[in-house]
Nucleic acid binder design. Structure first.
Lengths: 181, 181
DNA sequence: GGCTTTCTGGTACATTTGTACCAAAAGGAG
DNA sequence: CTCCTTTTGGTACAAATGTACCAGAAAGCC
């Protein structure tokens, strides 16, 4: 039932491989065989460490999402420059995980078991923007805009540079400043 | 080369069927056979009217996206109540098309041929919010927030009622009011 | 040491897939 | 009607897939 160290490593290698295949060839290309090949392990390993293809795929998506949640939740959004850097890295070097995360959102639509994971992401976004819950309305709007921006970056690749990203962030912050009750 | 009236009808029936299968079972379930069954036509019809499975799938996504683009582009966002109704319908009765539209965004990430379609959607959003280009900065932020809201509705089903949707819209508008240059 | 659990890697198989093919039916044009 | 294009629906097939199976190697524990 428990795993040997080497087993644990193989399991992790398979999860990483899922993200790479997903990033490179899309969700449809994630199969037992492609993942095993990508991870450099025999086919049977992919069925040994995971019940299902579903189990393998979901485990990878979940792990990626959790990483992003802790990453964003632990970030102070006050310094727009560093946030811009974070987002840029997120969309380039870490693109596989970013895709996995939104792929999970997509699946959550149809599968109740994933709702909690999806909500955790939205919560992390709002927490990062306003850790103390000072201005809920403003925070909600900013979170929506930030989410929209992230997807736009992912889908259209635009804004593509750190500078442009910072500018877009600044627009969001500045345009949501005023508004009394 | 040209199509008979009946042929045209069958072609359209297949495109509709794609959206229904996509909505019900997800992108992976869209196959020649499932679509043909859904449309009530023999398998061969799905290969006769479309070069490829790819052609069939993309044609359906494109048609859905174009419909949504004209729908939103032709809407004045001034009356939040009616916009809330529009969005609610979009996410419920018209859910298949909504999904198709964002599925296209997702594919556009990896396929240059779809970029124009994806950008058309973003353009339509901005145009609907501010037809005359009066305040580009505010419009960009509002469009991002609206896009974020639409995805949230699609993915988490929340806000789920027309009233809640209207409230969320109002928040976006009110929180992006001020900001001088 | 032994022994029980974990792991390995290879193979096998039924199912589903995209797509090609084709003989015949239907439809429109002269 | 006759001819020619479009359409039909059935069938076939190679490729890929999820998953089961198993003989044996390796690893951990007494």
């Amino acid at each position: 039932m428990s795993l040997t160290p080497k087993g644990e490593a193989r399991r992790a290698a398979l999860l990483d491989a899922v993200l790479r295949v997903l990033e490179r060839e899309g969700p449809g290309a994630v199969t037992h065989r492609s993942v095993a090949r990508e991870a450099g392990v025999p086919l049977a390993a992919a069925t040994y460490y995971f019940d299902d293809l579903d189990d393998l795929y979901l485990s990878a998506l979940r792990r990626a999402t959790e990483e992003q949640v802790t990453l964003f939740a632990g970030t102070d959004m006050a310094d727009l420059r560093s946030v811009a850097h974070l987002i840029h890295r997120w969309a380039t070097e870490n693109r596989g995980a970013a895709l996995a995360q939104y792929e999970l959102m997509f699946l959550a639509m149809r599968r109740d078991a994933l709702r909690a994971d999806a909500e955790a992401w939205y919560g992390a976004l709002e927490h990062a923007i306003d850790p103390h819950g000072k201005n809920p309305r403003q925070t909600r709007v900013r979170a929506l805009a930030l989410d929209g921006l992230l997807l736009r970056i992912l889908w259209l690749g635009e804004p593509s540079t750190v500078d442009e990203t910072e500018k877009a962030l600044r627009e969001i912050v500045e345009e949501t400043r005023a508004a009394a009750t």
